[in-house]
């Protein structure tokens, strides 16, 4: 599609996926554990997206149906990716 709004949301989506994977790997290596690890991930993830859209893109959030729409884009998938990477590395490095 050539819709610029869709394209921007796609960028956010893939940014989130990569971020989730990287966070999962880092969290697994350090290792983070407990509820704090989850909370830090969510905070970090939202922060990166927020900073990206505000300082690099300067988008008008109203065009996308509000801030929440952008913050929600791809969040669950990113979270799942993060958990998989975190769990696999955590159990491989610290429980074998």
């Amino acid at each position: 599609t050539c819709d610029p709004q869709d394209e921007f949301l796609d960028v956010i989506y893939w940014l989130r996926q990569i971020l989730g994977l990287l966070c999962g790997i880092v969290w697994g290596i350090i290792p983070f554990s407990g509820i704090a690890g989850l909370l830090i991930f969510f905070a970090f993830n939202a922060l990166v997206v927020y900073v990206y859209m505000n300082s690099f893109q300067k988008v008008d959030e109203e065009e996308y149906g509000g801030m929440m729409e952008i913050l929600k884009e791809g969040l669950m998938t990113s979270f799942a990716t993060f958990l998989v990477a975190w769990i696999i590395l955590y159990s491989a490095l610290h429980y074998n």
Partner: peptide, 17 residues
Amino acid sequence: MFSSIFDGRVVAKLPFV
């Protein structure tokens, strides 16, 4: 089928409860 293969096996350690 898969869950019967992995029945009762701990496949990973979760870093959280």
